[in-house]
Design a binder for these strands. Structure first.
Lengths: 217, 217
DNA sequence: GTCTATAAAAAGATAGAC
DNA sequence: GTCTATCTTTTTATAGAC
């Protein structure tokens, strides 16, 4: 899976929106509509109606539609990274059974993607709009936090002799491709629904293939 | 990689556009602009200007913007599947060295994706617009031709004892994920440029991991 | 079949009062 | 800070002549 999750560069004092009673309503409404309809199909009028505020309030707070959009994506991806981080910490901190623990980790992440519309839809939206908002691509260029977390865990497993890891980053890419990547492709990043059983099967098979390829000889 | 490539259901007599001198100019201009700017950001005025025809001609031929869009995507994905099929036929017909032949196959496909803007951009566009055009999702639901081609080749390798294949479709998904899937994720489906060397490295490593996981014991 | 001209609606952004 | 009302531009689609 790609690393759409980065929340550095947060300057707390300089933050637009989100403050005040109406701030939460605006960003929440914008998030719902942008994730559902995309950037161009979502009008500021619709966001104002959904949030129960006037359009002028939105422009006063955010300046223009583009800034509102980027602000919402930044907030959302920050939340998503936090969720991923917590799941990773719970499963990858100390591993006893490699295959079982990696499978449970990947399954938890996968279900957190599939079950909440706010997750996989966010990735789809960022990918769709990336060419038209260079700021999104700059975010993407940062040290890749999701791959980073996984690769550090795999490096530890390599040091412990539980896996044969020569390039931890490459191994993390392969594990991601065989699990989250498969799901993203199969669902068209959320456009097509898949059953929980399918997700479970894909994740289990993906981790099994990964472990077969990286087991110590 | 996902199977965005299907060209069945072609009813040659009933085809809109593409016929006549202006027909080619319209579909070609529409393809360029839709692939570059997406659906909503591309106006029919811009397509008419790019094609050198009047807007009325477009509406007479295609009815509305949506039909023009779907027609262009259908034509483009059909071309893309043909290209993929030819590459697969050239590399997978008879395989002697599994790792080398699979690597060359994946590399050829990958470069045909990366080098031509019409390829990977098409996948990105279809994925971006899929939720808003159910017809695109129905196309996607068809027997998956790309996975099908790969899985049949892998099944032959399994029968020949060169790989240990129990589920050919699953193996094909894993090979795709480790090669094309990795590239698509890394490039954000064409939004980010990668060097030829990076593509080569990813494909080589992906196939190596695949072969390690599926080699006969 | 092809063109010029136009209708009709939507959307981003702003003026000015409270 | 918030609201109603408005401006301006863009866009899809059509009318009607040649």
């Amino acid at each position: 899976m790609t690393d759409v999750l980065s929340d550095r560069d947060e300057r707390p004092g300089r933050r637009a929106g989100g403050t005040g009673p109406k701030g939460e309503a605006i960003s929440s409404a914008a998030r719902r509509l942008f994730l559902r309809d995309g950037y161009e199909r979502t009008s500021v009028d619709a966001i104002a109606a959904e949030a129960g505020v006037s359009k002028r309030t939105i422009y006063n707070r955010y300046g223009d539609k583009e800034n509102l959009f980027l602000s919402v994506l930044k907030e959302s991806s920050s939340t998503m990274l936090t969720v991923f981080d917590r799941i990773a910490e719970a499963h990858l901190a100390d591993i006893t059974d490699v295959q079982q623990d990696l499978t449970e980790f990947a399954r938890d992440v996968a279900f957190s993607l599939i079950r909440s519309p706010e997750r996989i839809e966010l990735i789809r939206l960022m990918m769709s709009e990336a060419p038209y908002f260079p700021a999104l691509l700059r975010e993407q260029m940062r040290p890749q936090t999701m791959t980073g977390i996984i690769s550090r865990a795999l490096a530890r497993l390599g040091d412990a002799g539980l896996l044969r890891i020569t390039d931890p980053t490459e191994a993390a890419d392969h594990l991601s491709a065989l699990t989250f990547g498969q799901i993203n492709n199969k669902t068209w990043f959320g456009a097509i629904q898949v059953s929980d059983a399918d997700v479970d099967r894909m994740v289990t098979a993906g981790v099994a293939t990964f472990v077969r390829a990286y087991r110590p000889s």
